[in-house]
């Protein structure tokens, strides 16, 4: 009883000091279970390789330089797409959020094109642009765009009208109101939109790399699929999960919290 309490107390205090630990420790039993299952030979190796195989393949691929190259390709595609998506999405969202006419005209069109979904564009994009960076970027921009626009609109509409009125009566011009009031007020939602958009964009990237692929993590996984190498597929999945986990849990979520909670606005 007391030993357990001490252990738990130790764990709580450790994770209090290093929050990253709380995100790592729960994976220990999972990896242990995985090792046990593969060591016990429940499935054939070709079907489910063990953690050690994956680590070895990680070392080999890193040494050969394939993995860093592919990773770099994927990340550049993702961030270029996300940046472009935001550059288009935020102004569009502000326009739709502030103008009733723009809202009426664009909203149904936005919903419809969002419903088509990124990946369904792939066949026609391949006809238009062929297998290349343009196609991939288009898909990712498309994926990131809609969550950003829709959330920016929500954000702009959620800014209390009295705030804009207060700013106007304090002498701000309409343009200043946009910059000083509307944009900061909508920021928490914009970041939520970015977070959702990147989440979708990440998946779209994998799909595109699998289908279109010439390089990137998704391509690596599907290439491994063709060669029947489960080890490299698993390695790819783990890298994808880890990367996104880091980006989401350590960058995007804190950013969302920093704006939303700091200002006491309800977002998440």
């Amino acid at each position: 009883m007391n030993v357990w309490l001490q252990c738990w107390s130790g764990y709580v205090r450790l994770t209090q000091r290093w929050p990253a630990l709380a995100a790592i420790v729960p994976f220990i039993p999972v990896v242990a279970l995985w090792t046990a299952v593969t060591e016990a030979g429940v499935f054939p190796r070709a079907f489910l390789p063990g953690p050690l195989d994956v680590v070895k393949s990680f070392a080999t691929l890193t040494y050969k330089g394939i993995l860093p190259d592919y990773l770099q390709d994927s990340l550049i595609r993702l961030f270029a797409g996300a940046a472009l998506g935001m550059a288009l999405g935020i102004p569009l969202g502000i326009l739709i959020g502030t103008s009733r006419w723009a809202h009426r005209i664009c909203w149904p069109i936005l919903l419809f094109f969002q419903a088509i979904g990124d990946i369904a564009w792939l066949p026609i994009l391949l006809i238009w642009f062929g297998f290349g960076l343009t196609t991939m970027t288009f898909v990712i921009v498309y994926t990131v765009l809609f969550p950003v626009v829709l959330n920016t609109v929500l954000g702009v509409e959620s800014v209390p009208r009295d705030l804009a009125r207060a700013a106007r009566s304090l002498g701000a011009s309409p343009a200043r109101v946009l910059w000083e009031v509307t944009l900061p007020g909508a920021l928490p939602n914009i970041i939520t939109g970015l977070r959702n958009g990147l989440g979708y964009g990440w998946r779209a990237l994998i799909a595109v790399e699998i289908i279109v692929g010439t390089s990137g993590i998704g391509f690596m996984m599907f290439d491994a699929r063709r060669a029947g190498s489960t080890t490299e597929i698993l390695l790819g999945m783990i890298i994808l999960g880890l990367l996104w986990y880091i980006v989401d849990a350590w960058i995007l979520a804190p950013l969302e919290r920093a704006t939303g909670q700091r200002w006491g606005l309800v977002t998440s």
């Binding site: 995100a23 989440g199 994998i206 996984m221 699929r225 597929i233 790819g236 999945m237 986990y245 849990a249």
Partner: peptide, 18 residues
């Protein structure tokens, strides 16, 4: 929570090859 967060990140498309 971290476990499920990790796996919900992978959800869907990344599982196609395997």
């Amino acid at each position: 929570t971290p476990l499920f967060r990790f796996f919900s990140v992978l959800a869907g498309i990344a599982w196609i090859p395997i």
